[in-house]
């Protein structure tokens, strides 16, 4: 049964990928890439990676196509030229692929419980994290504590992205007080759409909070929560326009929040250092190490959530601002 599911998902993935490769309509390609994201999220579920599936669904099928659609609205939807360099590219790709397939011949069989990947480092996470960290979701334990520094790096990457986007598109972000006749973005003439979305915005935010604080027990965590929270605001922006969204939360606040989340994460590490332990050693946060771990994870997940939500909103605002600029010119 699992094999059947596996094979059908994989073949759908291949079909989607080929569809993207041959399509010259970029809108269709982006749509397909969003489907690709959703399919791979499904695949991750069959591989027991529920946290990853959650993230991939919100990124691969959510934020990433959204930004691409915004870009297409600005740059146009059709490819102009047929593919160049097809033959040398094909050669290179076949060569790389052949090398990889050769490489897989010696790796342990798929699902083998005795593979080195399963027997060396991982058993400690599976057997000990319950007592060492004290939360059921091992992925959160590893993510936030054992490999907490990677996650710190991850937040910094998100922060680096927003610095780049602001540097490139920041000039079209509306400054305080500047009027924005953004009729283009307002879908307010769609009455049904408006009413339904208005109903949904608040539950989505609530769900974001649930994901944020329930990440210890089930799939979820700061990143997913941040994306979902941002999605609520983005829906609001789409319906009522950028200007209305800015009244709720303005760019300066978002910028400070984006930086604040990273600082919050780092300060947990610094507090641990001041208490005489190593950077990010949450044991130092409370008398009882397991409590300390718990506090540490809650705070850093909050930091991740704040930064991610602020960054996603800022990036969307920057793109939407560009779109408005453009509709002004034309």
């Amino acid at each position: 049964m699992e094999l059947l599911l596996d094979i059908s998902l994989l073949s759908m993935l291949v079909a989607t990928a080929i569809g993207i490769a041959v399509s010259r309509d970029l809108l269709a390609a982006v749509m397909l890439s969003s489907i690709y994201g959703l399919l791979s999220a499904n695949f991750f579920v069959t591989m027991d990676a529920v946290d990853v599936a959650f993230t991939e669904a919100s990124v691969g099928a959510g934020i990433s196509p959204l930004l691409m659609f915004a870009t297409l609205a600005i740059v146009g939807r059709f490819e102009r030229y047929p593919h160049q360099r097809a033959l040398p590219a094909l050669l290179l790709v076949v060569l790389t692929g052949a090398m990889l397939i050769l490489a897989t011949l010696d790796i342990p069989a798929f699902g083998d419980p005795n593979a080195p990947a399963q027997t060396h480092v991982a058993p400690r996470f599976i057997n000990e994290s319950g007592t060492e960290i004290g939360i059921p979701n091992m992925v959160t334990s590893v993510l936030a504590s054992y490999r907490g520094f990677d996650t710190f790096g991850e937040v910094t990457v998100v922060f680096a992205a927003v610095v780049g986007v602001l540097a490139l598109l920041g000039s079209s972000l509306p400054a305080a007080g500047r009027k924005l006749p953004d009729t283009l973005l307002q879908a307010s003439n769609h009455r049904i759409l408006r009413i339904v979305s208005k109903i949904l915005v608040a539950p989505i935010m609530l769900f974001a909070l649930y994901v944020q604080f329930h990440g210890d027990y089930g799939p979820g965590g700061g990143f997913q929560a941040g994306v979902i929270f941002a999605a609520a605001i983005i829906i609001y922006t789409m319906l009522f326009g950028l200007e209305a969204a800015m009244k709720v939360i303005n760019v300066t606040v978002l910028r400070v929040l984006a930086a604040f989340g990273v600082l919050l994460y780092g300060s947990v590490g610094l507090v641990a250092m001041l208490n005489g332990k190593n950077f990010l050693d949450y044991d130092a946060l409370a008398a009882d190490p397991v409590h300390g771990q718990h506090y540490g994870i809650i705070v850093i997940e909050l930091g991740v959530g704040i930064t991610v939500a602020a960054v996603m909103m800022l990036i969307y605002f920057a793109f939407a601002g560009r779109l408005i600029d453009r509709s002004h010119k034309s």
Binding site: F152, F260, V262, G266, G269
Partner: peptide, 13 residues
């Protein structure tokens, strides 16, 4: 490493 890493967001503020 964390000096410049935390310096960056502080700098943005």
């Amino acid at each position: 490493v964390i000096l410049p890493l935390l310096g960056a967001p502080a700098c943005l503020i």
